[in-house]
Computed example of a mutant assay.
Amino acid sequence: MVTTTRTAPLPSLASVYRTRAVVELKEFSRQREAVVFTLLFPVLLLLVFGAILDYDIGGTVGVSIGFVQYFLAGVTAAGILGASLQNMAISIATERSDGTLKGLAGTPMPRHAYFVGKVAQVLAVTVAIIAVLLLVGVAFYDVEPPRGRDWLTFAWVAGLGAAACTLLGIAISSLAKNGRSASATVTPIALVLQFISGVFFQFSQVPEWLQTVAAIFPLKWMAQGLRAVFLPDQLAAVEPAGTWELGRVALVLAAWCVVGLVLCVLTFRWQDR
């Protein structure tokens, strides 16, 4: 009598994606330093800068706008950068260094499922950061939230910006020699971009040559697109081009998505050198 053994059916791709997303979110929530820096640091910046720099910035264009209303756009963009570029670069470099990536590459799991899990993590953390910053801004500083069609602009600027920065974070993860050096490699890059992209003060106050440098990278355009959401149209006059340039914002962020994807394909490694 011949007996046959039945092999268990492989899980569906949707099930694999869902599992990887849950794993990534659980791993992120268990890393206290990452949670504090990624989620709470932007909130801390908003509270500190809001308490210290409480002045009107709209006098030159005849409107009354507090600095916090302006700063909320910049710190939101910085929060998205932290949740995507910084978080991705550091976590992937660490997982590459401790052998996690090499182990995953040797399993039957489709390799792209790993990146789907990472994207799900970035999306969840980004939404959480935006929600907390809006809540703090409205509750403590009387910031006016977006209205009507501004929510649509908010969604595509944040979405494109997060996508571009996530892809760049995956690519930049290969710059770090190992997991221990990842934070020291990535954090200075993020801080420099924040200082020259109009996050901590008005972009018009940045020297012109630094404005040119900032315009190469996505953070400047993400912050500019979010200013169009939080600020009245009159303040577009103080932008370098005199308008919000939302069309160019979309074009530059989309271009960085393409550039980031190409860099990921060319540079990503599943194990250390």
Results as ranks from 00 to 15, higher is better:
residue 81 L to Y: 09
residue 56 D to N: 15
residue 229 V to T: 04
residue 135 L to V: 08
residue 202 Q to G: 13
residue 35 V to D: 09
residue 79 G to A: 02
residue 226 L to Q: 07
residue 240 P to I: 01
residue 188 P to W: 09
residue 105 A to W: 13
residue 56 D to R: 12
residue 21 A to C: 09
residue 191 L to N: 14
residue 114 Y to G: 03
residue 174 S to E: 15
residue 85 L to A: 03
residue 31 Q to I: 01
residue 150 D to L: 13
residue 269 R to L: 01
residue 46 L to E: 01
residue 174 S to H: 10
residue 190 A to W: 05
residue 68 V to M: 12
residue 231 L to V: 02
residue 217 F to L: 10
residue 155 A to D: 08
residue 144 E to M: 06
residue 231 L to W: 00
residue 192 V to S: 12
residue 128 A to H: 08
residue 66 G to P: 05
residue 178 N to C: 05
residue 172 I to R: 04
residue 97 S to P: 06
residue 230 F to Q: 06
residue 105 A to K: 15
residue 219 L to A: 05
residue 217 F to G: 01
residue 210 L to T: 07
residue 86 Q to T: 12
residue 61 V to W: 07
residue 58 G to Q: 07
residue 134 L to T: 02
residue 192 V to W: 11
residue 188 P to Q: 09
residue 17 Y to R: 05
residue 253 L to I: 09
residue 40 L to T: 09
residue 52 I to L: 15
residue 130 I to C: 12
residue 199 V to Q: 06
residue 60 T to V: 13
residue 105 A to V: 04
residue 124 A to F: 10
residue 67 F to P: 00
residue 85 L to Q: 09
residue 41 F to W: 10
residue 223 A to S: 12
residue 231 L to R: 00
residue 190 A to S: 15
residue 87 N to R: 11
residue 70 Y to K: 05
residue 195 F to A: 14
residue 179 G to Q: 11
residue 46 L to Y: 02
residue 156 W to D: 02
residue 4 T to Y: 02
residue 167 L to V: 09
residue 14 A to F: 11
residue 55 Y to G: 03
residue 173 S to D: 11
residue 242 G to D: 07
residue 139 A to K: 09
residue 219 L to S: 07
residue 23 V to N: 10
residue 85 L to G: 00
residue 20 R to Y: 08
residue 53 L to Q: 14
residue 120 A to D: 06
residue 90 I to Y: 02
residue 226 L to D: 03
residue 141 Y to C: 07
residue 191 L to R: 14
residue 5 T to Q: 08
residue 254 A to S: 15
residue 54 D to L: 13
residue 66 G to A: 07
residue 68 V to K: 01
residue 14 A to K: 13
residue 142 D to K: 14
residue 117 G to I: 05
residue 6 R to F: 04
residue 77 A to R: 02
residue 172 I to Y: 10
residue 266 L to P: 02
residue 204 S to T: 08
residue 152 L to V: 15
residue 111 R to I: 00
residue 228 A to L: 03
residue 188 P to K: 12
residue 132 V to S: 09
residue 257 C to Q: 02
residue 67 F to S: 06
residue 164 A to N: 11
residue 163 A to N: 11
residue 65 I to V: 15
residue 17 Y to C: 08
residue 98 D to P: 13
residue 22 V to E: 15
residue 34 A to H: 09
residue 75 V to M: 00
residue 183 S to P: 04
residue 159 G to K: 06
residue 125 V to A: 03
residue 84 S to Q: 10
residue 242 G to V: 04
residue 150 D to I: 01
residue 205 Q to A: 14
residue 133 L to W: 04
residue 145 P to I: 03
residue 239 E to R: 08
residue 172 I to E: 05
residue 146 P to F: 03
residue 231 L to H: 01
residue 170 I to G: 00
